[in-house]
């Protein structure tokens, strides 16, 4: 397996994740898009760590996972709260910053 394949895969995953975040309205799905982007980044980090024979990339990936886990916990809690109060999980409904 060459380096290019990993990079292309990671890029495709990142693009899918970004598109999901930008285009979907459901907050849960947007969240999943974010996760996808994070994992694409992780894949990239691990790939380069392997190629350079340096573990720091893998350590970085662990950090990303830990932060992602924390973020999921808080993010999901917020989404649940919003859903409870507004009966909707659409991100477009949460535009209180305007006006």
């Amino acid at each position: 397996m060459s380096l290019t394949n990993y990079l292309v895969l990671a890029s495709i995953l990142f693009a899918i994740g970004a598109t999901t975040v930008l285009l979907r309205r459901n907050a849960i799905v947007v969240f999943m898009g974010v996760e996808l982007m994070l994992n694409a980044a992780n894949l990239m980090l691990v790939t380069f760590a392997r190629i350079h024979g340096d573990l720091s990339g893998q350590v970085m990936a662990f950090f990303v996972m830990v932060v992602a886990a924390a973020e999921v916990v808080i993010g999901l809690a917020i989404i649940v709260q919003i859903f409870r109060t507004r009966r909707s999980a659409s991100v477009d409904d949460v535009n209180l910053l305007k006006s």
């Binding site: 975040v21 930008l22 285009l23 309205r25 991100v91 535009n95 209180l96 910053l97 305007k98 006006s99």
Partner: peptide
């Protein structure tokens, strides 16, 4: 430019 839609902010960032 400030639409209040999170998605448009995200698009701007991207």
């Amino acid at each position: 430019w400030q639409t209040g839609y999170v998605r448009s902010y995200a698009a701007t960032m991207t």
